[in-house]
Amino acid sequence: MNPVISVENLETSFFTKGGSFRAVNGVSFEIARKETLGIVGESGCGKSVTSMSIMGLLGGNGRVTGGDIRFKGKSLLNMKTPELEAIRGNGIAMIFQEPMTALNPVYRVGFQIDEQLMRHQLLSKKDAKEKTIEMLRLVGIPSPESRYSNYPHQLSGGMRQRAMIAMALSCDPEFLIADEPTTALDVTIQAQILELISELQQRLGMAVQFITHDLGVISEVADRVVVMYAGTVCEVATTADIFSKPSHPYTIGLLNSIPKIGEKRDRLETIPGNVPSPMRLPPGCPFQNRCPRATEQCRRERPQLEQLKEGHSVACFNKVVSA
C-alpha cells in the first residue's frame, strides 16, 4: 500500500523569548487514498501544529526539528519554497476552522477561487470562472453564478465553509487536511458539511486528515483514528476499535467523559488535572499525572507505540487490553 502521506517521528519545536519547546514530539501516521484519518485530542495537543508542519506554514518561530513527512513518497521537508508552493493548494489542500476570517474580506469569493486555478492549472480568466462556478455548484451552493460575485460577508456561515471547500478542492488535490472545519458551525450545517466532504472524497479519491476534538464527528467520518496528547500519539486504531476496545487510559478517559443517551448519571466524568504546559513536560509519559494507572516506570520512561494487534497500536506501559 502506498500511502499518500506519511509522517514519521515528526518533531516540531517553537523558539520563543520565553524559551523553546516541542509542540509535536514524535508523531507518526500514514494515510492512504480514499481513507480518512481522524486526529483527536484536546486543544494544545499539537494536532494543528502537525498539519501546519505538513503544509510548511509554521510561521516565524516554529520549525520542524526531527522526523520526516513524505507526500507520495517524496520528502516535503527537503523541498525548496517554489516546489512547496506548487504543491500547496494543488496536491495538498487545507480547510480551516473559521471560514469568515479565512476568506479575504476585500475580494469576491469567485476571485479567490479563480486565482488558485489560474496559479496551479494555468487557466485563463474565462476558463477559471467556469470551473469556479462548477465547483461552487458541486459543493451545493445555490445559484453559484451570482454567488461568484459575492463578498465573503454576504454568505452565511455554512455557505462560506462550502465556498472554502470548493476553493480547497478546485485543483483536485490528492490530500486534504480539514482542521476542525465544522467546529464553528451549527449542528445541522455540520452534518451537511461532513456529508459533503465524504461525498467529494469518494468522488475525487482523496486522502483526508480530519482534525477535531469532537468524538462524535470522528465516529462519523473517520476510518482510522489517531489520539494525541501533549504532542505525542497515544493510540492509533480503526474507528470501531477506538470506540469499542479503547486501550490507552487517556482514550478511555475521553470516551467516558461523553454523556451517553440512556445512561443515568449524577456527575459528569472528567479526567482530573490539566494538560501540562509544553515548556514543562515531565520526563516519561506526558499523561502520568492524570493517569489512574500510572506507575514508577511511567514517570521514568516514555512509552513508545507498540502494536496491540493488526491496525491497533498503543503507547502505554499499562494499557487496557479488552477481550
Binding site: G19, F21, N78, N289
Partner: peptide, 20 residues
C-alpha cells in the same frame, strides 16, 4: 530527513506528582 537538532526543553522540568 532533518538532523536531530531538537532543542532540549529549556525550562525546568517539573516532575508533577499525582493529584497536584
Amino acid at each position: 530527513m532533518t538532523e536531530n537538532n531538537t532543542p532540549p526543553v529549556t525550562k525546568s522540568q517539573n516532575t508533577a506528582t499525582l493529584g497536584q
